[in-house]
Design a protein around this nucleic acid. Structure first.
Lengths: 129, 129
DNA sequence: TTCCGTGGTCTACATTTGTAGACGGGCGGC
DNA sequence: GCCGCCCGTCTACAAATGTAGACCACGGAA
């Protein structure tokens, strides 16, 4: 169980995503990015940032008179949680086709494909035994 | 763009999931299942069912004096939409490891693994060219 | 020293979501 | 033919969410 229980809401995710993209950032940059990306007002971003820190997804590190915001967990961890939600919902039978869809759609690089293939082979071995 | 715009809320998903599991069902069965699975009252299920039909995820086919509820799109389609949301959020770099995680965690059957592997090989070919 | 821009905090408010009771009508049993 | 049960609809209402203004303090520019 991850320490963070409250998953981010969709709007919060968007801010989180910006944080992932920009890396640890000052409010001004996040606000600018959110304005550009979603047309949000500064206030909106501030609120979402507060809620994210409340929920523990974002950490506000005091720097001078203001904060540097950073995601508390790395992007891949956060996405993983999302993925878990997906699995939790998905019916067992539908899973295979779901993954196929994802692989097709996500246009992985050759290296990534190789890794994935290796993983699959390993799993197949396991099934053999 | 799928016809359905409003994605189901988490609670709605739970009902949808029950519908997928049970197949087209009468209210009584859904209510019973939801009671068992989530401890919900009949009213709650009814409301969620209404909202789902409003949003177009569920279709209420009149049968006698009541309805037979059925999901408007097959499970795999619905999950696919969820998966799309996931991809939309996920940063490109993180995708590979995300899929690995999913494959590992979802414990596919040998057949499913084979299919997935075939798909990956196909993609690799494509990268070659 | 004064003023302004930024950033943070408070407050606000409409909407959506989660959860559920009340009510009226029909059908199946007695 | 009357009764109760089950169903669908209406209504309710608290909490979460989306979106944002008001206000205040401080640090830097002038």
């Amino acid at each position: 169980m991850p320490p963070e229980k409250n998953t981010p809401t969709p709007a919060e995710w968007k801010v989180l995503k910006l944080l992932f993209d920009l890396g640890p950032s000052a409010a001004r940059d996040l606000i600018a990015a959110a304005e550009r990306a979603h047309g949000w007002s500064a206030s909106t971003v501030k609120t979402l940032l507060r809620r994210l820190t409340d929920k523990g997804h974002v950490e506000a590190q005091a720097v001078g008179s203001s904060y540097l915001y950073r995601a508390t967990r790395p992007a891949h961890r956060a996405f993983r949680d999302e993925a878990d939600r997906l699995l939790a919902n998905s019916a067992p039978g539908a899973l295979g086709s779901l993954l196929q869809y994802l692989v097709k759609k996500s246009r992985l690089s050759k290296d990534e494909l190789d890794e994935l293939r290796a993983l699959i082979d390993a799993q197949r071995e396991e099934r053999e035994r």
